[in-house]
Design a protein around this nucleic acid. Structure first.
Lengths: 338, 338
DNA sequence: ATGCGAGGTCGAATCGCTTCGACCTCTGGT
DNA sequence: ACCAGAGGTCGAAGCGATTCGACCTCGCAT
């Protein structure tokens, strides 16, 4: 194993000088820096993670708590994870994976063992049991998602209420007056997951403001459920011309259902989704993008900021960006009445 | 921070005794053990990960290299990850996430910095660039998947060739003589991913043995591609009565396509898939299960074994288990000719 | 010429744990 | 009665980095 003293010897300096070159915490002459870096490369030196953690009280590791339960759309989840890992590496940190089911014990363990410098918790629920614990930890935490009471916490997420409002606003601007919302699986609402209820709330408030009617249907992530939801919506609201879909898994099924029920998109019915932009782009779908990359990266940056400066903005709500594509168009009177 | 000396003081023993209680590397009287454990619980002690790693040369961390590229079915991937994390925790280890794109540098870094005790590499390709590097590492590695030359490596995976054979065998046993294979996306074959080509190989060899004809179609993970593949198969082989599907993403589309083309399952065409069992069970589909849980757990166990004993079986090929469900049935002459 | 501060480097202490060797106390065999 | 060895515990020496204080050398202001 090649250690810092080997590098020091090779570069003809002391070990502490090598350390200072690496950390930049004291001025070192350019010439010395050059030699040290050359030796580091020559020997392929990497500091021993444990030793470094012990001496510096920093592990350069971020813990990421990922949810592994029903109703979370796995590809989206993976996008978050990827974004976090990628960004973490950019700032010289590694990512430790914790699963939900280790729950509070996991958080305690990470804190007590100094395994990680900071913790990122994904998929926070409105009334999350971990929130009190998170508040009490000395380890900096960042939550992806907003609990009901975010007091004293650092949270980041898409502004889902605004996203819901944006969808309704977009459709209303196009002249639509009767809309449907195909939402998340019932289990997700039941669990009190913030983003689902917030979208519904945003949709409802925008609907009230704009004087449009919206019918909502929760929807399991299956083709059958999507068809059923569409059929119900068309039945209870025959004059429906706008559709908001907030459920990644069933978007294609929804479009298929409309096709099979002889509703052309966007001629008869306009569709706007809240989903990852890649998915929407592939289907040429109007959407509010779910900026997983952005959120993940922000979460890491917030964590790093908490580590260095201590205080950071408590709430980061990313403004929704609506991209109009081929699935939304003006409501036309003749069609409304057909 | 509560350290080992605090526990020692509290339990009225020396620090080394506490350490030995925890590691079990020396006999300690039951009474002392009891007191020490009581103190540990009372103080909420967890050993400092860095200090432990430094002193013991074991970080109790497993590095997991996950692929993040096109064509990997994300839910399946997540199953592996979950299985690995779960099992790792059971044996008192944590999991560090490395992404593919850090590539060889990531592996080198982990080795040099002693971040992890062992490395698990997922989604190994037939001609994987990382294989030579893996061979040269002193850190124990376990590969999920088999490269073309597995000499000197520890690999674990489903026996995909046998899985392919099992599918064909099952259909042949039922009297089918003309079959189609709906395979992975072309990119996956092009990349030389082992499991895809091995299934194809297994299918081909079994077909030869059993004297049946098989047509193969690669298939992108979209509904359209699935429909196209089915149409092509039905066209080039009109008397086709059996179908093997090795592509999680399009299974439902394949079934939908058969339905739309007026082929009843299993009356007209029998379908067997290679996919996670939960998916198959939901669709009441005959399948060879993709035992992600089992593979992940084995990978961890192999890694641990390499850490303690040093030598372990090089190749672990899990025998395929075929579960017959509602989608496969006897070929009936009348139907063959209809 | 002198003193002082900034820049640059080094040595030694320290972080919290594991582990090695030593020591003490029994117990059982001779 | 004595010794060997097993069982049980302790003290001290690392593990490989970081960091603090000290020291030396300049150049510059006085």
């Amino acid at each position: 194993m090649v250690g810092i003293v080997d590098v020091a010897r090779h570069a003809k300096v002391s070990a502490s000088t090598v350390s200072y070159v690496l950390s930049g915490k004291r001025p070192i002459s350019p010439e010395t820096q050059r030699r040290v870096h050359a030796s580091i490369r020559a020997l392929g030196y990497h500091p021993h993670a444990g030793a470094r953690a012990l001496a510096s009280k920093r592990s350069n590791v971020l813990a990421l708590v990922v949810p592994l339960r029903t109703g979370v759309h796995v590809p989206v989840l993976m996008q978050f994870v990827t974004a976090v890992v990628t960004r973490a590496r950019e700032v010289d940190h590694d990512v430790l994976l914790l699963t939900q089911d280790e729950g509070e014990r996991g958080l305690r363990r990470v804190e007590a063992s100094a395994l990680a410098d900071a913790i990122i918790v994904m998929d926070v629920e409105l009334d999350d049991v971990r929130v009190p614990l998170v508040r009490s930890l000395r380890t900096p935490c960042v939550l992806i998602g907003f609990p009901a009471d975010a007091e004293g916490l650092t949270c980041v997420d898409l502004d889902f209420a605004a996203a819901g409002r944006a969808c309704v606003g977009h459709l209303a601007d196009l002249g639509h007056r009767r809309m449907g919302l195909v939402g998340s699986p019932p289990a997700v609402y039941a669990r009190g997951t913030g983003f689902a209820t917030r979208v519904a709330g945003g949709v409802a408030s925008a609907a009230a403001e704009r004087g449009v009617l919206v019918e909502t249907r929760a929807c399991e992530p299956t083709r059958e459920a999507a068809f059923a939801a569409i059929d119900e919506l068309l039945q209870t609201m025959p004059e429906l011309t706008g559709l908001v879909v907030h459920n990644e898994s069933v978007i294609e099924s929804v479009l298929a259902a409309l096709r099979e029920r002889d509703r052309r998109v966007p001629d008869d019915i306009s569709v706007v989704a809240i989903c990852p932009d890649e998915l929407a782009a592939r289907l040429d779908l109007s959407c509010v993008a779910l900026p997983a990359d952005d959120v993940g990266r922000r979460a890491v940056d917030l964590a790093m900021a908490k580590l260095s400066q201590g205080v950071v903005p408590a709430a980061t709500q990313l403004a929704p960006r609506l991209t109009a594509r081929a699935t939304s168009a003006c409501a036309v009177e003749g069609r409304l009445l057909r």
